[in-house]
Design a protein around this nucleic acid. Sequence first.
DNA 1: TGCTACAGTGTTATTGTATAACATTGCCAT
DNA 2: ATGGCAATGTTATACAATAACACTGTAGCA
Lengths: 166, 166
Amino acid sequence: MMKPVAPSFPASSHDHRHCMHEALRTAEHLCASQGVRLTAIRRRVLELIWRSHRPSGAYELLEQLAAEGHKPSPPTVYRALEFLLAHGLVHKINSRNAYVGCSHAGESHVAQIFICDRCSNTTEQADDAVERRIRRNARDLHFHIREQTVEIAGLCPRCAEQHDGA
Amino acid sequence: MMKPVAPSFPASSHDHRHCMHEALRTAEHLCASQGVRLTAIRRRVLELIWRSHRPSGAYELLEQLAAEGHKPSPPTVYRALEFLLAHGLVHKINSRNAYVGCSHAGESHVAQIFICDRCSNTTEQADDAVERRIRRNARDLHFHIREQTVEIAGLCPRCAEQHDGA
DNA sequence: TGCTACAGTGTTATTGTATAACATTGCCAT
DNA sequence: ATGGCAATGTTATACAATAACACTGTAGCA
């Protein structure tokens, strides 16, 4: 008995060319409106990250850049990542030491990120209820939040199905 | 105008000798009841981690072990950490690449961990409301959770006070 | 136009984190 | 005693991130 293929895990089935294009456009607008420069390297790194919804490691990005003739050194890529992080264009997935495009760039949100153990695809939510409850708990502790990091690992719908079948 | 010193961030003021002793006793009981061995190295690493509520890096632990004459190699420590993680005796703080003792060992919980940017002290909560809300969101995505990681960075009450004063 | 200041990038080297692969030891059940 | 297996030892290497300093190019301004 087959369930329908997951309609709800965005990475599963969508027009990724469009998705990526949107992200780049948004990035350009955001940088322009903030008076910061989306330079060639920064833009290229962002494009590479957006090639999929799987988090990319810094050295993976380095190799992809090398394959285009550039062959930059680690600091170059880390500086681009630092910029993209600072302007909310990508998220760092700490449990993977890797980076993924932010789906809510410019929206001032607190993200919860779901990561598939098997296919590595991710999806991002910004549920206020989670965020507020954590903020409330922090307040009770008299703790001053700078940043919330919520990462949920497990199986995406597609992979969970295959897993059940096996 | 001074607020009273944070009564609610546990790391601030408590009988740590007792706290640490309890943790070790619990670990022994848990291992015994599960028929697994809390060997000398594993126990030693756990003790070192419990010296404070600040997360310890693996190489930091290595140095502390070396100072006692042992001088083990990285895999030794990482294997001990792997064991302690697997049996719920410590948590890994991904945003720090470091490890901290679990305050709810044996209780089958999902932890939210608060980490102070300034003094590095941590405290752990297990709020079902946060956990359930995340589980609910996962269900809506048809995502099968294996593990939730919630890390909150910011200032603990004591450090926040000093910060305000400055 | 030319100067200055500073953001951005290049380069080299190093530090920090984690694991692969294989050898050895020691416990313990039969 | 011995065969099997968990635990540890050992060596080497992969992967992740940053320090420190040099160079370049662009924007603002005299």
